[in-house]
Each structure stands twice: as structure tokens, then as C-alpha cells.
């Protein structure tokens, strides 16, 4: 290769610069420490006021009984935890939450994946579908809840109209315990779908097309391509989406509050909603604190499990 005189002149200079750079040490001097505090200070302050202090206080309150005005009075050790974990009511809430969380996570990802896979095909007018499928991202929880409440309305709702036309038995969507759970799950999945779809669509589109071309040459079926190229290639995104959806499902509050208020017969009384009810309705801050700590432990456990189990199957 021919080299221009100019480039041969600049090269030694660049080498010189890198040499100088490697010499610098990474020890913090006094000025750096000053900057560290400036940069970390605000977030540390905000975190300690709004996260660490409440967490410690929650832990503290959970070891007491609280009186009318929410002040801790009697130290009871772990008895709040024991009475919670032996109460049939709380355990049923726990069970209900698990069913809901897994149903929401699995359905959201499955439907999101199917939609994203179809929407990733380059067809005429596909943009319309992409917009439609991701539209729920722009819908707030309250709007979604009201929208679905109309659909589930027992007298004038869309679903009850359909079952009247088809002469099917009426379902009390929000008054029957099983149906209410299904109704809340459908609504949550619908709400989450936009975000999941968009993230998965982005992931699918960034899979190198050469892989598919090679597979086509080999004569692999679309299904085989999806399972053996698309899924492994987007596994980091699937992992991310599954964690986010799972945690969001655990934290689900707005929809429950607006649609069922935890009813009927506590069939949709999820852990987070229960904490809110116990603290801000019943004024039982001690019990609510114990519930919060248990919820934190559960979410931490699931996140850890996901990292342990799912991460092994992720191809980065």
C-alpha cells in the first residue's frame, strides 16, 4: 500500500500521545474527591431521604404495634411477620399475586413476541400495525381502567352485549372471583403489551439478516428460524423484558384500585394493594410495614432467581 507523506508524519505523534496517556495513574486526588461528592451528593441525599430512611423506618415499624395515630407503642419482635405468614387471608393474597404475576409476565411476553415477530416483516402498511400494537404505551393506567370498566360493565358493557347476542351465559366480569382475576390480568397484559412489543420489535429488527439468508439457503422453515435464530438472538432483550414485566406486575396498583379494589372476596387483593389498604385505610402501619418487607424480599428473590436461571440461557 502506498502511504502519503502526510500520514507517515502524523503516526509517530499519535503513538507519543498514547504513551503519555498510559502513564497517568487513577488515584483520586483531593480535587477529584471534591467532585465525587458534588456528583454523588444530590443523588445520595435524595436516595437517603426518600429510599434508605423509609426502608429503615419500615423495618423498624414492622417490629412494633402501632396505635391510632400510627405511632409505634408495643415492641412485638417478629410477631407481625408470624401472624401474617400464618393468616389464611394473607397467604391467599400471596397466592393470588403469584398467579397474577406469572400469568401477566408469560402472556405479555408471549403475545408481545408473536406480535413483534409478525410486525417485523416488511410489508406494505406495516407501520400502521406497529403503531397500533404499541399504542397502549401512551395510555395511562386510569384511562385504561375506565376503558376496560366500560367493556366489563354487566349491563351495558361490550362483552355482555356480545354474550347477549350469542345467547351465551352472562359472566360477572368484576363480581365473580375467577372472572375478576381474568379481567384484571387481561387489562394488565393489554397495558403492558405496547412497551413489550416495542422493545421486542427493536430487538428482532436488529438481528442480522445474513443469519436468515443463510438459513433460507439451508432450507430451514420459518418456525425453525424463529426458534433457533430469533429467540436466541433476542434473548438478552427477552431477559430484560421478563424482569421488568415481573417486577411491574408485582407492583401493580392503579388498575386494581380502579377496577376491583382488591375484591371480590379478596380475589384480586395483591400484595401491594393490601399494603396500601392496611396502612392508609385501616391505619395499621405496623402490619403494612411487615407486608412491605416481605414483598421486598419476594421481589429480590425472584430477581435473583431470574439472574441465576435465565442468565445461563442468554446469549450476549
Amino acid at each position: 500500500m502506498l502511504k502519503s507523506p502526510a500520514s507517515s508524519q502524523t503516526k509517530p505523534l499519535a503513538v507519543n500521545q498514547t504513551k503519555q496517556r498510559t502513564k497517568t495513574t487513577f488515584a483520586l486526588n483531593a480535587k477529584d474527591k471534591y467532585y465525587a461528592w458534588i456528583f454523588l451528593g444530590p443523588s445520595l441525599l435524595i436516595l437517603s431521604v426518600f429510599i434508605f430512611y423509609p426502608m429503615i423506618k419500615t423495618l423498624y415499624l414492622s417490629l412494633f404495634l402501632t396505635n391510632t395515630v400510627g405511632k409505634p407503642t408495643v415492641f412485638v419482635g417478629l410477631s407481625n411477620y408470624i401472624s401474617l405468614l400464618t393468616s389464611a387471608d394473607y397467604l391467599s393474597s400471596l397466592g393470588v399475586t403469584m398467579v397474577y404475576v406469572f400469568a401477566v409476565t408469560i402472556l405479555t411476553i408471549a403475545i408481545g413476541l408473536v406480535l413483534a415477530n409478525y410486525a417485523s416483516k416488511e410489508l406494505a402498511g406495516i407501520g400502521i400495525f406497529r403503531t397500533l400494537f404499541s399504542a397502549t404505551m401512551g395510555v395511562s393506567v386510569s384511562v385504561a381502567a375506565i376503558f376496560w370498566l366500560f367493556i366489563f360493565n354487566p349491563s351495558t358493557g361490550f362483552l355482555s352485549l356480545i354474550s347477549t347476542w350469542l345467547h351465551l351465559p352472562q359472566i360477572g366480569w368484576l363480581t365473580d372471583p375467577t372472572a375478576a382475576m381474568i379481567a384484571v390480568t387481561i387489562t394488565t397484559v393489554w397495558m403492558n403489551l405496547g412497551f413489550t412489543f416495542l422493545i421486542l420489535l427493536g430487538a428482532i429488527q436488529s438481528v442480522p439478516t445474513t443469519l436468515y439468508e443463510a438459513a433460507n439457503v439451508e432450507g430451514a422453515s420459518p418456525r425453525y428460524q424463529f426458534l433457533h435464530i430469533t429467540i436466541p438472538m433476542i434473548s438478552p432483550t427477552l431477559f430484560f423484558v421478563s424482569i421488568i414485566t415481573l417486577i411491574e406486575a408485582f407492583k401493580s396498583f392503579g388498575l386494581i384500585d380502579l377496577m376491583t379494589k382488591g375484591g371480590p372476596t379478596n380475589a384480586t387483593n395483591m400484595l401491594v394493594y393490601r399494603i396500601y389498604k392496611d396502612a392508609f385505610y385501616s391505619g395499621n402501619f405496623a402490619q403494612a410495614s411487615a407486608e412491605s418487607i416481605i414483598l421486598t424480599a419476594i421481589i429480590a428473590l425472584f430477581t435473583w432467581l431470574q439472574f441465576k436461571i435465565l442468565e445461563k440461557r442468554v446469549n450476549y
Binding site: 360493565n153 349491563s155 360477572g172 368484576l174 363480581t175 379494589k261 375484591g263
Partner: peptide, 15 residues
């Protein structure tokens, strides 16, 4: 049975 809460009241009044 219209269930409980504000929606029950709205629904029973509507009916």
C-alpha cells in the same frame, strides 16, 4: 349482584 364499591352503585342506578 352488582358487586361492591362505586362501580356497583353506578351500575345499579343505571339499571
Amino acid at each position: 349482584n352488582y358487586g361492591s364499591g362505586a362501580s356497583a352503585e353506578t351500575n345499579e342506578i343505571a339499571a
